[in-house]
Design a protein around this nucleic acid. Structure first.
Lengths: 176, 176
DNA sequence: GAAAAACCGTAGTAATTTAGTAGACTTTTT
DNA sequence: AAAAAGTCTACTAAATTACTACGGTTTTTC
């Protein structure tokens, strides 16, 4: 019942992409750097998102990726299903079609449908745009906090980029 | 986001146990036979359920296991958490305590709480007693259907036990 | 009181899945 | 033409899962 790194990385990558879209197409390299994810691995993930119709690619120099829809029209469920496959906790043929030889084939139909539906409802009601907003709020809050600490101590030696990188690293250890 | 066999087997085992409780303590051997699960593996699972306080053991010859509470007081969530650990799709320290060094540590807190809560709500609202009732309904329905088919064809060579065993086997391929 | 039935626990192992790497190739812009 | 960027496949290492094996201990029943 755990989400794998595919889902977590993918979500982070899309938040990052959405946050930088005003600067034009976003390269996997830049996302990989900012998010501290292996570039090659990220490429695979983002290609899955392309196949799923969530992002568009722009080839050639200066190219990269772009959201295929508005961030407010992409749900967390859309993203996770692209990367993790079906989110159903238990796959039962009876739920989808009527592949079972009897109409009431197994107990799954009863329990699992409820559970699977609840999961689907949850992930489909959170939108990428919300995550972007939330992430932006957190980052600026943390940045201010850091900068204040630096000022209190010895004169700040860290650049803004270093501070950002550290925040990303901290996020990584905390589940997303 | 998939349930492992631990959860599925465990659920089947408890349904089986609850269904046979009126005959006294239920041995792991008998459950393993009826449910077609490795006895040794099942023992491990049921010991986890004991540690979790869902079943009691009765030692010695003629012993076995018993539900620790009424079937109507054991939720699917209780069972799955015993066997699969936390059902949270993503573990984030920020959700539980305030282990994060900042109050608003990561985006997880926002998204994952909603998702995790939905899953919890779903599994905690289905009770073992419902599964037992459902399973009983299905089995008798399927049994009748089978027996009818047998009568139509050549004279029934299969015993009632063989028919039961087959139903169990079919259930197994269908998700539970 | 001995044997059988049952619970208890750990260690190991095979199979599967996940996470990540490597590298060669194609397309497009500058 | 060269550089930047996406595309694709295959391989490998680590982790997890699903068992299996086996050597116990406890309790009941005959």
């Amino acid at each position: 019942m755990k989400l794998s790194t595919r889902g977590r990385y993918g979500l982070r990558a899309l938040i990052d992409l959405a946050s930088h879209e005003d600067e034009g197409a976003v390269s996997t390299q830049s996302i990989a750097q900012r998010q501290n994810i292996s570039e090659s691995y990220l490429e695979q993930l983002i290609r899955m998102l392309k196949k799923g119709g969530l992002v568009l690619s722009v080839r050639g120099a200066g190219g990269g990726y772009r959201l295929a829809k508005k961030a407010s029209e992409i749900s967390v469920g859309d993203i996770l299903r692209c990367l993790e496959g079906s989110l159903d906790a238990v796959a039962c043929p009876a739920i989808e079609g009527s592949d079972c030889d009897s109409a009431n084939a197994c107990v799954s139909k009863f329990v699992w449908k409820r559970i699977n539906d609840a999961i689907a409802q949850a992930v489909d009601s959170v939108w990428l745009s919300e995550l972007v907003a939330e992430s932006h709020k957190l980052q600026t809050a943390q940045k201010e906090q850091k900068e204040q600490k630096e000022q209190e101590g010895r004169p700040s030696a860290k650049s803004r980029d270093e501070i950002n990188a550290q925040i990303i690293r901290e996020m990584q250890n905390q589940g997303i």
